[in-house]
Computed example of a mutant assay.
Amino acid sequence: MYALDALKTMKIGEVLQIIADCPQSFQSVPEETVKHGYELVINPKKITQDIYFYIRVIK
């Protein structure tokens, strides 16, 4: 997941927006977010084919 590389370069408190179109990401992105110590700011939102995630750096 390229988002993990981006999150590693971010500062505490910053939020990364991820836009995905793979249905599997609805489950995998939140799981990987928690697994790697980040915070899912709001529940994923599906708009048409795209799924929006917002992940905050907390460590």
Rank of each mutant, 00 (worst) to 15 (best):
S25R: 04
I47L: 12
E39A: 11
Y54T: 07
E31Q: 12
I51Y: 02
T33I: 12
T48L: 15
P30C: 07
I55M: 03
S28I: 10
E32K: 10
Q24P: 03
P44E: 02
V34Y: 01
K45E: 14
T33Q: 03
C22S: 14
F53N: 00
P30I: 05
E39Y: 11
I42S: 12
K45N: 08
L40H: 01
K46T: 12
E32C: 08
D21F: 15
A20E: 02
I18L: 07
P44C: 05
Y54H: 13
Y52G: 02
Y54P: 00
H36M: 08
D21P: 04
N43E: 15
S28G: 08
E39F: 08
Y38V: 03
I55P: 00
Q49A: 10
S28Q: 08
P44M: 01
T48C: 14
V41A: 04
V34S: 04
V34E: 03
A20L: 03
S25M: 13
I18H: 00
I18C: 02
C22K: 15
P23T: 10
N43P: 05
P23A: 10
E39V: 07
I47T: 12
N43C: 05
N43V: 07
D50I: 07
P44A: 04
D21A: 13
Y52T: 08
K35T: 07
Q49M: 11
L40M: 12
Y38I: 03
L16A: 13
I55C: 02
I18E: 00
E32Q: 12
P23C: 08
Y54W: 14
C22M: 10
